[in-house]
Amino acid sequence: MLKPRIIPCLDVNDGRVVKGVKFQNLRDAGCPVELAGHYQQQGADELVVLDVSATRQARLAMLETIEGVRKQLSIPLTVGGGVGSVEDAGRLLNAGADKVSVNSAAVSNPDLVNEMSVRFGAQCTVVAIDAKRKTDSPDLWQVMTRSGTRGAGIDAVNWAAEAQRRGAGEILLTSFDRDGTRSGYDLELMSAVTGACSLPVIASGGANSVQHMVEAFAHGAHAVLAASIFHDGNMTVGDVKQKLSESGVNVRR
């Protein structure tokens, strides 16, 4: 049986880790290479690095960051943020990523998912979905793009199923409503997506406690992503895994 994965996430801008609340108000949280090594030592099962750079210059610094992180890591590394083409994905893989996540570009050009899957394999192709509850019908979620600034006008659950048909190997599912709120993952969203597609789904957005993670796993998540819970230093990955284990979740030792 596969082990539920604990994945710290580093949002990186211009070579530094930052964490936004609802993708705004970024604040510095450290050096990505240092943090990556740190989390690996604590027992992280995987690491996600998201490029949140706003400028072209900061974007170029990203490849160097990935190379530095790769040198440290003996666990899988997923990189995403601003990936617009198969060539972009190739550059990130070449710098040391094991998987690449695509978001906005895949929404506007869904063939990108097929192309990445054919070129690099499904195991390399992660589709990141930022989902926001519809105010007029709260049991539906719409896909947000451009760092959550734009509604794409498509249904998040349907998009996850389509991503699977197009060859994605994994879904990184972020609740836009919960991100940065520390009120727990959107469990209904998780259930809806895992009901519609059979890919591994990573829960993201809103985690503030081990209980939140236990709930996400109970609702079908294969992995949980968390940033501030770890960056703030209140809990190490090891603490979290210990508590998960005590709660009956079969994590990697």
Binding site: M1, L2, R5, D45, A122, G169, E170, P200, H222, R252
Partner: peptide, 9 residues
């Protein structure tokens, strides 16, 4: 089962 197998075992 989910295919691919993706994770720790």
């Amino acid at each position: 089962v989910q295919v691919p197998q993706l994770g720790w075992n």
